[in-house]
Structure formats: C-alpha cells, structure tokens
Amino acid sequence: MTAAPMTIEDIKTAIEVNVPGASVSIVPNGSPSAQHSLLLDSEHAVDAARFLRDHAVLRLDFCSNMTAVDWLDTELSEKVKVQKLIDGVETEAEETRKTKVPGYLEAVYHLFSMEKKHGPVILRLRTKNRTDQVNLPSLTPIWRSAEFQEREAFDLYGIVFDGHPDLRRIFMWEEFTDHPMRKDYVPPTDDEVELMEVARR
C-alpha cells in the first residue's frame, strides 16, 4: 500500500469538477501522520463516493472501515476589544463573547484501492445536529462492506443512514432506546458497589 496517487487537494478539486453542486472541504490532521480527510456535503455524498470508486486513477474500490464520532455542543469564548464609555471617557475594553457551536455526529469512512494498491482516503459526513436531524446518506450502495458498520453506527451513535438496505440495531436489542457510544450517555445504575458508595454519602 502506498499513499494515494493524488493529493487531497487534487481529489477535492476532481470531486467538485465532476460532481455538479458538490462542496468538499478538507479537514486537516495536524499529527505526524497528516491523514487529512475530505468533508462531503450530505446531498452529494453518494455521487461523490461513486465518483471516487469509479475514478480511473483512484479506483477506491474498498471501504475498509466505517466509524462514527460524537461531537458535543461546544461554547467558543473569544475576547473582543470594544469601545466603551466608562466614566464619560471612551476607552477600549475587553469583552468575552460566547458563541454556541452546535454539536454533530460524524461518520468517517476509510477507503483503499485493492486494484491500484493505495490508500487510505478518508471521507467524513456530518449530521446537522445531535438530536433530531441525524440523517446521513448511506454509502452501502457504493461499498457493501459499510453495511454492518453503518448498522453499528446507527446502533451505538444513532445516525440514521438513508438508503441503507437493512438498518436495524446490530449489537443491542431492538427494544433498546439509547445510543451508548454517545458522550452524554448515562448507563443504568445497577452496580451494587456504586449503590453502596451512594448510600455511604
């Protein structure tokens, strides 16, 4: 396996040129591995994926891994300099402004080419939020190997994959309503040692 024959920027441009309307952005990876990934928009993700699979040079014919990440709502606080009237004198003061960044669920696909022996190329898809708009297009029609792993992401993270042929829970039972790999998941307290600790307090 060697690195992909095209740079991540070239892949991004190729998708944008060949898939009309697609907007791709690069998510940089600052670590020494420098495995930057491509963030696709949900609407054109299937077309972009098909383009990558059928591309003459890339031929990303194998999705080796599909996983998910839960990004919680975050609060960005930045210090802004504002002109303020203090005791009748206009002075420069610092003010912290807090902006809420809504969280999202992210699906990550690691693609390789068995034919051209290269990889990985990493794709990301993001949901609009973590609560009610958690739909993403399924890439199972493009790569069959994503089927069970998308079911796993559906089970443990609650991402709903539109277009998946058989979207059922894969690990937990069907009556289960939680998504245990989400960061705000609270497991049931059925641990008698824990209960003893609570009673002691």
Partner: peptide, 9 residues
C-alpha cells in the same frame, strides 16, 4: 429486554 437495561435488572 427493556428500554435502557434488562427488565428487571
């Protein structure tokens, strides 16, 4: 199989 845990735990 309960909604959050086995029923009863």
């Amino acid at each position: 199989y309960g909604a959050h845990d086995l029923d009863p735990p």
